[in-house]
Design a protein around this nucleic acid. Structure first.
Lengths: 247, 247
DNA sequence: CCAAAAGTGTTCTCTCTACACCCATGC
DNA sequence: GCATGGGTGTAGAGAGAACACTTTTGG
């Protein structure tokens, strides 16, 4: 570490001196942590990794990473999501920033939290393994293990966020495959809101918004009456959007 | 700058090396920017400062400051608000983090934005002058000058936030003096939501929540019929809160 | 024919909206 | 007495909530 060209040290010192003068008061960094929601087998799940590095080696944690020098927070979140899952073009949103002094044992790390809603099952499969995790699993939100850092808190705030959001914006569709049945849709609402809904009222209301397109297609391969498949119509939703509907 | 004891440089280099190994990828810092809303003379205003330092010397900007090493984001926001206004015990909330690469011309500064709602007029007077500003003024949100950095964007997002929030939580009360009339309250709603409301319907709805306490007092010193004064009842609101009312 | 889920209407209640006039006060 | 804002009720429309049975399909 101390064997290189001494000019490098001078440069380092110079850079710090200049920055110190104008800007930073201490050395710090940012990370992005993601709460990746998925819906599978009638359950709401999030992606967790089992850490393979200190601190919190062997603990479960939210996937996340450090922000790079040349990328904005949103770009960073998109990159990290892509690295972790191989996915792009995903509904993703920054929702809170966690900056307690000691949230990271190795220094001041402020973490900007994003959530994303992923379509599980179907053809797209998430391949979340990266080198700093032993493995990654989708885990039911009702059955989470103890999490590293302040990730429990980050998760809870994210959960609150989508509970509020699902009432006003069509995020439920992001969790489902492109073609879905009304029962599947209702199921997403019930699981996220954590309460039973009335089937007739739910259908009436959903259809009344006019953002579902009946595909004139049926499920197949099910051992009961096949349900009609619908698709979410983004163009119609965009028109409706201005007046803030209540799902 | 380069004349001190060389051990200090060694220490600096050492500290950087260690941190570099484990954590930070680059030198960076955070700031807090505040959108301080106030309501005065029937207008919604925010506090702006005229900068006295580069960059953006002589520009108007949102009040803000750097986060210190030993304080959490919320603590920092509270401190900064106090330094800028002398006020404490104010409704304040983090709402978004701005992290574009070039948002600050002198380096990477990620800014965590908070808003606060202040009671103007009455007995509490805001004394917002600090040393990095020439002066500070309350300026009508409909009449803002060009702002430094990305502060226009920060303001707009804050404005959106309170527009949504006022529909579900009693933040309007935070902008008014402790005793207020129903017309004043309606006025706050009209200005923030930017539309006229029906007087009878507004009163009916507000009173129906049961969170206003009639003080059996009247205005005085007005040149027309004196209005009844009300007070916001926080205890009753707390009970109601769980079921997310719509103002 | 049975199990499992799909699909379908009506009634009642409550909430939202639209709307106009008299009252009290200071000057 | 007039200008200014304070204060009040009702009717109609629309949205939300409660509620149960028939249909279709695969096995």
């Amino acid at each position: 570490m101390f064997t290189g060209n001494k000019y490098i040290y001078l440069l380092l010192i110079f850079k710090i001196s200049v920055l110190k003068e104008v800007l930073p008061k201490f050395n710090s960094t940012f990370s992005i942590d993601c709460v990746l929601f998925g819906f599978d087998e009638g359950e709401l799940k999030i992606l967790l990794i089992e850490r393979n590095e200190e601190p919190f080696k062997d603990w479960w944690a939210l996937p996340g990473n450090l922000v790079e020098e040349n990328e904005s927070l949103d770009q960073s979140a998109t990159r990290i999501l892509h690295e972790l899952t191989g996915l792009s073009d995903i509904y993703m949103e920054q929702y809170y920033t966690f900056g307690d002094v000691n949230r990271h044992p190795q220094g001041r790390v402020v973490s900007i939290a994003y959530y994303a809603l992923l379509r599980l099952g179907g053809d797209k499969v998430v391949k979340p393994i990266s080198n700093y995790a032993k493995q990654a699993y989708w885990i039911n939100v009702k059955d989470l293990p103890k999490l590293a850092f302040d990730h429990q808190q980050i998760f809870e705030k994210g959960m609150e966020k989508i509970m509020r959001r699902i009432k006003h914006q069509p995020i439920a569709f992001e969790l489902l495959p492109e073609k879905f049945t009304l029962t599947q849709l209702q199921n997403v609402y019930e699981v996220i809101l954590n309460k039973k809904l009335d089937k007739r009222n739910f259908r009436k209301k959903m259809l009344s918004f006019g953002v579902l397109r009946d595909l004139n297609e049926k499920q197949y391969g099910v051992s009961f009456r096949a349900a009609t498949l619908y698709k979410f119509d983004k163009r119609k939703y965009a028109k409706l959007f201005s007046k803030e509907i209540s799902f």
